[in-house]
């Protein structure tokens, strides 16, 4: 163990011990003390599911996202339409995306089989699924892997097409985090296109991340 590690931890302990006001708290186990933290903020949903969905669509539109409503069988047609609207012909697809989602003709499909960075740079559109969405803030959460791809796949292409099932949409962030099952996987949350307000506080869409998002809602 390094000297620095010992010094830092030891100093913290000695400093805390020097404060007579916190003696009872220090004697307690961290778990017992943690359990007493007041959590009176909203954690559960307050709206019914239809209202939650409306709220989510509103938030997505607020971010200038495009929305396409369809069902499981309509996914290929929805993708074909989104690509046509964008004037694009090559679609990057993580290996975990089911074949049944993809249009069978008129579109070049590039499977991300450990593509090099320069190969990832070629397609301007990427298709993925997601893990859960937060209606209150219009946030899409990716746990990556499988049909959600590795992180670079949803970062380099300029246009992200995301398949969202209605039952993946929850009202609060607390509910969404509670639904994650693989906490140590890389996790990315996305709320609207990349943006900056660094110059004169003027909000500009599209800096380094994708500039367009199409949500395909099932």
């Amino acid at each position: 163990m390094s000297d620095a590690r010992f010094t830092v931890l030891d100093t913290i302990r000695r400093q805390l011990a020097a404060d007579p006001d916190i003696k009872p708290e220090l004697a307690e186990s961290p778990e017992a003390a943690y359990a007493r933290i007041p959590r009176d903020y909203q954690r559960a949903a307050a709206l019914d599911h239809e209202e939650i969905l409306e709220l989510f669509y509103d938030r997505l539109r607020d971010y200038d996202s495009e929305l396409i409503f369809t069902d499981e069988a309509g996914i290929p047609a929805a993708i074909a339409q989104a690509m046509r609207d964008a004037g694009e012909t090559l679609l990057l697809v993580p290996t975990g995306v089911p074949q049944s989602w993809l249009p069978t003709q008129g579109l070049g499909i590039l499977r991300d089989e450990q593509l090099t960075t320069s190969a990832l740079e070629q397609p301007r559109c990427v298709l993925t699924g997601c893990t859960v969405c937060v209606a209150m803030s219009g946030t899409i959460v990716l746990e990556h892997g499988a049909e959600q791809g590795r992180r670079a796949a949803t970062l380099l292409p300029d246009h992200h097409l995301c398949i969202i099932r209605r039952d993946q949409v929850v009202e609060t962030l607390a509910e969404a985090l509670g639904r994650l099952t693989h906490l140590t996987a890389p996790i990315t949350t996305i709320a609207g296109p990349s943006a900056t307000s660094d110059i004169e506080m003027t909000r500009i869409r599209g800096v380094h991340g994708p500039r367009r998002l199409t949500a395909i809602i099932l």
Partner: peptide
């Protein structure tokens, strides 16, 4: 804990830039 992010990821973007949620959060282990 991981779940504590439910507090901070609501407070931080609204306080910092006046957004409901900032465009990206990256969490990795």
């Amino acid at each position: 804990k991981f779940q504590d992010l439910e507090v901070f990821l609501q407070l931080l973007p609204r306080s910092a830039t006046g957004e409901r949620m900032n465009p990206y959060n990256s969490i990795w282990t």
